[in-house]
């Protein structure tokens, strides 16, 4: 079965693109930074899938985290190198549009990943609805609180699309729980230390906090540490489904984490890109269903990223 697919793809590629064979395909993968475990999981997913279908990968990561000028330069440099396709997570969904337009102009196909670009041409977009993720994670928190009590929210980087959508989702979830009071929403920029300190300060003004909603797991862990050090307890939820959050849930210190499965996003992103290159049909849009990981379904997600396996390339379009 697998052999047949490879054979067909070689035939199709040979038919269309001349010299390129499967082994010659190179895909440039762009992620936002090399510090957030989320993007490492994405990269592991792309590498896993690339190995299975026999394409070469080049990973481009800005050396200053989330730097717009730098990712722009990296796209320009990649265009010089002429990879067969780009798999692209923009550091900013608006500011990276001109760079992608350059790739479009150079005739290099682009697959969008994780954050949807505000413009430019993409072959396909693979991601998760951050709004839904925020909504469902928030819902899980508010239900755990029994639909009443006080909640605080820690925001990520203001203006980033992921933060905007996750906060919007949470605030909408809140509307269904009239007995829950949102005490305050404060930014902690997706960072641990800031989340810890902001949480410590918030606890001073609010003696009773029953739930904490954070827009990523790093902030959730900061909030967990702050509460623990003050001997206070609250339901804490985060987003990303990181191994660290899973371990905290296992230990009973955290309630849940909403996962958009970065590993799977990496797999699907790469496989879709390759499908498009090999002229196999692709979907315009492929959304990973958000999963809320809590103590009830913990087991099936408690698997290290490096030992997970991507789906087969022929199964991707059907998904």
């Amino acid at each position: 079965m697998k052999n047949a697919v490879v054979l067909i793809s070689i035939l199709t590629v040979a038919g269309f693109a001349g010299p390129a064979t499967a082994a010659d395909e190179t895909i440039a993968v762009f992620t936002k930074n090399q510090t957030n475990p989320f993007f490492e999981s994405v990269r592991v997913g792309t590498a896993n899938a690339a190995k299975a279908v026999g394409v070469k990968l080049i990973q481009y990561v800005p050396i200053k985290p989330d730097s717009i000028p730098e990712q722009t330069s990296q796209v320009e440099d990649a265009i010089v190198k002429k990879p067969n396709a780009l798999l692209f997570i923009p550091v900013d969904y608006k500011a990276m549009v001109p760079a992608i337009e350059k790739a479009n102009a150079a005739g290099i196909p682009v697959t969008g990943l994780t954050d949807r670009l505000a413009g430019g041409q993409v072959v396909s977009f693979i991601g998760a609805e951050d709004y839904r993720l925020g909504f469902e994670t928030g819902q899980s928190l508010l239900k755990a609180m029994g639909g009443k009590g006080n909640v605080v929210a820690l925001e990520g980087v203001k203006g980033s699309i992921s933060n905007t959508d996750r906060m919007k989702g949470f605030n909408d979830a809140l509307k269904d729980f009239p007995n829950v009071k949102l005490l305050t929403t404060q930014p902690a920029n997706y960072q641990r230390l800031q989340a810890l300190q902001v949480m410590e300060n918030i606890m001073q003004t609010h003696p009773q906090i029953d739930g904490v909603y954070t827009a990523n797991d790093a902030m959730a862990t900061g909030a967990v540490e702050a509460m623990a050090a003050a001997n206070r307890k609250a339901f804490v939820v985060g987003i990303n489904g990181s191994q660290e959050a899973i371990d905290l849930i296992k230990a009973g210190k955290m309630h849940a984490t909403g996962s958009s499965d970065p590993f799977m996003q990496g797999c699907l992103g790469l496989l879709t890109t390759v499908r498009a290159l090999r002229k196999m049909p692709v979907q315009k849009e492929l959304m990973v269903t958000p999963v809320i990981i809590d103590s009830s379904n913990l087991k099936q997600y408690d698997v290290p990223v490096t030992s997970r396996v991507c789906p087969k390339i022929e199964d991707v379009a059907a998904k």
Binding site: N33, Q34, T35, N36, R192, A218, T221, E225
Partner: peptide
């Protein structure tokens, strides 16, 4: 304090 370390 943070019980955790990452590159950033």
């Amino acid at each position: 304090r943070l019980n955790s370390a990452e590159g950033d």
